[in-house]
Design a protein around this nucleic acid. Structure first.
Lengths: 347, 347
DNA sequence: AGGGGGTAATAATGCGCATTATCTCGTTGA
DNA sequence: TCAACGAGATAATGCGCATTATTACCCCCT
């Protein structure tokens, strides 16, 4: 027996009114000034209760309404393969926020993968329409992909700071600039005078922000700039030794374990000779039980805040001020930061 | 400028045909024997190419078609909170399968939570309609919740064996029976004669399956049954000592680390005096670097297989034989299984 | 020439809901 | 007493697509 779903028409019939009346009752009347008497309203509500009616989101959406579905689009693969779990934290936060908001989450896993990354354009993008709005995660390379979204005023929010498009792109990002500068503070406070930064090769926003934060920090303390560009740990370790650096900020793209090993093979101990500070949770799996100093990226909170922002944008457009949110990255007190070696400050 | 989305009507206009013709071309004609000439077909395809048309899944669904969206419903919370990541493995597998199948994943995070678990019934269930079908994960307590799905022939697949409803429920499960029996084999092969099983309190299917597997195993080797029901590790450890058990199968609900500690405090070493075999990956976080012997639950594969099965059920109903899939659980060669102590077999 | 039969396409309709335009009626003012 | 008015509800319509019913047309045969 295939039961027919309960529709507004069914409810209307039971209440002895028309289908639009039911719709009006549910939506608190339309902008065109339709009014429903209290008596009719309660009859309809009673009929809804009896029938157990609830709206069909598909039909709602087709008729221009909301589905209560928010989408998540990741430019890279969503779930961890080979141990690297880049999105996990974000998704946790998003999921919890979705629960609280009472919305469903749509993961756009169908988007065609071209050159190793997903595309919004092509036949991928019309599928976004199922959701009321969408979160965008990952490194977007091609700004033009956003054009359809901007043209149609499709609501979206980036996770991760986005400075392009004249500040029109809503985002929830981590404040890498402040957090990185703060790591310089920490090192300086412990007497370090030669503070290096092993930066990432990339030119994406987080990389730029970290570099900016580092430069801000060293300027604040009047210490020299030691930007390290080494591709392999051994080279980096040599540079650290040769330049007499005692504290190193490490971009998460690098393997800090390998660097520690390379330093060890040069006879440099961590943290006795060299302090290491991680600029965000490592992408590479942790080796050994050592806790690393530095800061952590508040991924869950970012995800949650982004979804909340998105839902507000969907609902009422959210004020411009709220459309750009930077979240602080908490420091981690680990075992790789120590006071500067005596030779350093004294020499 | 709010651009109008490209619809079939637009394509039709460009190709000089009617909207249904476009629909027919896209779907390879309807069952009612409508035919499209090769020439018209190519004109339409060309128009589709030019306009960049792609179907609106919402409209497709409303018109009784498919959305290419598959849902995931979890009875418990989906994402890890407090370190316990129960669904992670499944979701990874599901996600990879979704990518391969070219479908999107809808996570039903909106379902009202009652008594700590989500409900399909109530206003949650109509939302399923957005998806073509749905995976069900977790411990379902109330069979009656399934009734609407069964009534409407809504396609769904359980992850985890389900034996109720007269075998009508499609599932992809792990073969706990065989895997558990095999652990008994492993212990017996190493000379263990007193093989215990620290079972879970619950009466859910996995718990039953593990017990059945254990009983099968001990029967096969003609050794005695030692079912342990202890609630706390200390009690369990005492029972193991008192009964002279040399190998213990441990249900994943128990904390194996705590049990090892309790055994140690009784002077029993693992694996020298007592071998421990885990019946599935532990829910509790691993402590220390020790690798545990036992078997692992192939969560990723289960998730992937379940999604593939679901998509086949959606597409063509899938043969009955395929609707019940049991996947083997690979053994783990860890450090907690060793030959039986000399006293055991010799006494 | 007229009908049978097959092919190729269009017209019409519905999915469930939101929304605008329209209608009905009881009430009020002149 | 009659028109104007407004509250309260309905009719009508469209969203984009799938699908059935129907039409238009051409070829062949008697």
């Amino acid at each position: 027996m295939v039961r027919h779903r309960v529709t507004q028409a069914d409810v209307a019939a039971l209440a002895g009114v028309s289908q639009p009346t039911v719709s009006f009752v549910l939506n608190g009347s339309a902008p065109s000034g339709v009014r429903i008497s209290e008596e009719t309203r309660s009859r309809v509500l009673e009929a809804i209760r009896i029938t157990g009616y609830s709206a069909n989101p598909v039909a709602q959406r087709l008729a221009g309404g909301r589905t209560q579905i928010l989408g998540v689009f990741t430019y890279e693969e969503t779930f961890p393969r080979g141990g690297q779990d880049f999105y996990g934290g974000f998704l946790n936060g998003i999921e919890h926020a979705a629960e609280r908001l009472g919305v469903d989450m749509l993961l756009f896993t169908s988007a065609r993968v071209v050159d190793g990354r997903r595309r919004l354009t092509g036949d991928g993008w019309p599928r976004l329409g199922v959701a009321d709005g969408c979160l965008l995660l990952g490194r977007l390379e091609d700004q033009s992909e956003l054009q359809p979204l901007l043209d149609t005023h499709y609501p979206f929010v980036f996770i991760g700071r986005r400075r392009s498009e004249g500040g029109r792109l809503p985002y929830v990002g981590a404040d890498y600039v402040a957090a990185t500068a703060r790591q310089v503070d920490r090192a300086a406070a412990l007497g370090h005078a030669r503070i290096g930064c092993l930066r990432a090769r990339g030119a994406d926003q987080p990389a730029k922000d970290r570099e900016e934060g580092y430069l801000t920090g060293v300027a604040r303390h009047g210490v020299a700039v030691h930007l390290l560009d080494a591709d392999d740990p051994a080279t980096a370790a040599r540079a650290i030794r040769d330049q007499g650096i005692t504290a190193v900020l490490i971009a998460p793209e690098h393997s800090h374990d390998d660097l520690a090993d390379a330093l060890a093979s040069l006879g440099l101990r961590v943290p006795d000779d060299v302090s290491l500070l991680l600029l965000g949770q490592p992408l590479h799996p942790q080796r050994g039980g050592r806790t690393w100093s530095g800061f952590t990226v508040p991924r869950e909170e970012m995800g949650a805040r982004a979804l909340v922002l998105l839902s507000r944008i969907v609902a009422d457009g959210a004020p411009r001020d709220d459309r750009h949110q930077l979240i602080d990255c908490p420091d981690i007190d680990g075992g790789t930061l120590a006071a500067a070696p005596q030779e350093g400050p004294l020499t």
